[in-house]
């Protein structure tokens, strides 16, 4: 780390100096590349395992897959999609995640609009409460909400889990939106009102289009959070396999399969595919949201 002191433009240096500069920096390159490879190794071993024949995956190490003869197959994917209910769980995960992302974003945006552009008594103290609620552990809410759900027959239903995820996602969403809205130039809104625009028009035609970056950050946050959630689904959807999302189905299989759990490598990869795709395409929004809202656990 202490080798490189300055970074002169390589163009101005002679070949020998450039070579010396490069050699000086090799320890850094080696460290960076070794660390990245170490970090990737667990995921790579999963990926390799998921393409191995079922009988080999639980009896030999994944690294033996690189010995001749190569034996790669899609057997595990076929099996987990058809026999263990993974296909249905995938659809359930979508059914749970899409509304549980849309509802809190809309509701939070309405509230943040009121918090940043309208005057009402108690506005500041209510917002401080929202900031406080950012870090409340879900555990504090599980028993009372579950009891309420039993009474209202919402246990094991999609609307039940949509509403729960909506509430749990709201504090961060309101916080981020309100911070974002308050950076929008005030005169744009005021001139819109002067031109006779209603709050409805101002919100949907002006504020929301200007907030696309904030909405994108929040959407990917909430989507990943709900898609990857285990605890909330376990509590409110627990015993009902026909509505269980991927996380619940896989974790049930892990605990019930004992020694044969290696067959789940393909299932785990199926559950990672969509979040990884979204993450890679929307990474910059994710990072922006992370930086803006680094207060929530």
């Amino acid at each position: 780390m202490s080798t490189n002191t300055t970074r002169p433009s390589p163009k101005r240096l002679s070949l020998a100096a450039r070579l010396a500069h490069f050699l000086q920096r090799t320890p850094i390159h080696i460290a960076v590349i070794v660390l990245s490879l170490l970090w990737m190794e667990p995921a790579i071993s999963l990926l390799v395992s998921s393409f191995r024949p079922p009988n080999l995956v639980s009896t030999t190490g994944w690294w033996t897959a690189f010995k001749l003869p190569f034996q790669f197959t899609l057997e595990l994917y076929r099996e987990s999609l058809t026999t263990s209910g993974m296909g249905q769980s995938f659809v359930n995960s979508l059914f749970i995640t899409i509304p549980a992302t849309v509802i809190p974003i809309m509701i939070a945006a309405f509230a943040a609009y009121a918090f940043s552009w309208m005057e009402f008594p108690g506005r500041n103290i209510l917002f401080v409460i929202v900031v406080g609620l950012l870090v409340v552990p879900l555990q504090m809410t599980l028993i009372p909400v579950l009891r309420l759900y039993v009474k209202l027959k919402l246990v094991g239903t999609f609307p039940g889990i949509w509403l729960a995820h909506t509430a749990y996602g709201l504090p961060l969403a309101i916080y981020l939106f309100r911070n974002f809205f308050s950076t929008l130039p005030r005169d744009i809104l005021e001139s819109a009102y002067l031109d006779g625009a209603s709050s409805f028009t101002a919100f949907f035609r002006l504020v929301l289009p200007l907030s696309v970056p904030a909405i994108a950050s929040l959407a990917i946050f909430q989507f990943l959070w709900v898609w990857n959630d285990l605890l909330v689904a376990l509590i409110y959807l627990g015993g009902y396999p026909d509505v269980a999302p991927l996380t619940v189905t896989i974790s049930n299989l892990v605990t019930s399969m004992g020694q044969g759990w290696q067959l789940l490598t393909a299932a785990a990869f199926i559950s990672m595919a969509l979040p990884l795709f979204l993450f890679l395409t929307l990474q910059r929004f994710f990072v922006r949201g992370l930086l803006a809202g680094s207060v929530k656990g």
Partner: peptide
Amino acid sequence: AISFVAASV
């Protein structure tokens, strides 16, 4: 990006 469940596997 991935779930703790997938990470556990």
